[in-house]
Simulated assay, not measured.
Amino acid sequence: MSTTELAWFKSSYSGTQGDSCVEVAVTEQAICVRDSKDVARPHFAVGREGWSRFVGFVTEV
């Protein structure tokens, strides 16, 4: 799936300036992540289970 076919969104914690944040897009197989400041660069994908574990970890901190 190409980057342009994905529905990217920013965290609700992102500031209105649009700097220093990431964007995510959800697919059936994975969560895709990219740098919002440089959307032309390649994104990376994390499996749903790995993403769930990551989010669980960061919400505990």
Rank of each mutant, 00 (worst) to 15 (best):
V39C: 09
T4N: 15
S14N: 05
I31S: 04
Q17M: 07
K37F: 00
G50M: 09
D19E: 09
R34P: 01
E28K: 13
T27C: 05
T4V: 02
W8L: 04
R53A: 15
E23H: 00
S11Y: 06
G47D: 13
W8R: 07
A7T: 14
K37R: 10
V46R: 10
K10P: 04
T59K: 15
D19Q: 06
V22S: 02
G18N: 02
V55W: 12
V58T: 09
S36T: 08
F57A: 15
S52H: 13
V24L: 03
E49T: 13
E49C: 08
S52V: 10
W8M: 05
Y13M: 02
Y13W: 05
A30K: 12
F44G: 09
R34I: 04
V61L: 15
V33N: 06
A25L: 03
V58R: 08
T16D: 12
R53K: 13
Q29C: 11
S11Q: 08
S20R: 00
S20P: 00
G15Y: 03
G56K: 14
M1E: 07
E23N: 01
F9I: 07
R53N: 14
Q29M: 11
F9K: 11
S20G: 01
F44N: 10
S36I: 09
R41S: 07
M1G: 13
T4W: 10
A40Y: 05
V58K: 06
E60S: 15
Q29A: 15
W8Y: 06
P42A: 03
F54K: 09
T4L: 05
S52R: 13
M1R: 09
V58S: 06
A7E: 10
E60G: 11
F9R: 12
G15R: 00
W51G: 12
G18E: 00
K37Y: 01
K10H: 06
S12L: 02
C21N: 00
K37P: 01
V58C: 06
A25Y: 04
V22Q: 03
S2I: 10
Q17T: 03
R53W: 11
T3E: 08
E23S: 01
F44L: 13
K37D: 00
F57G: 12
G50L: 07
C32Y: 07
Q29H: 14
S2M: 08
R48K: 15
A40P: 11
V24I: 05
G56D: 14
S12Q: 06
V22I: 03
A45C: 06
Y13C: 02
G18R: 00
E23I: 01
D35T: 02
V61P: 14
E5F: 05
I31D: 08
D35A: 00
F57Y: 15
F44W: 02
E5A: 10
V24T: 09
F54V: 09
S2A: 05
V46N: 08
A25E: 01
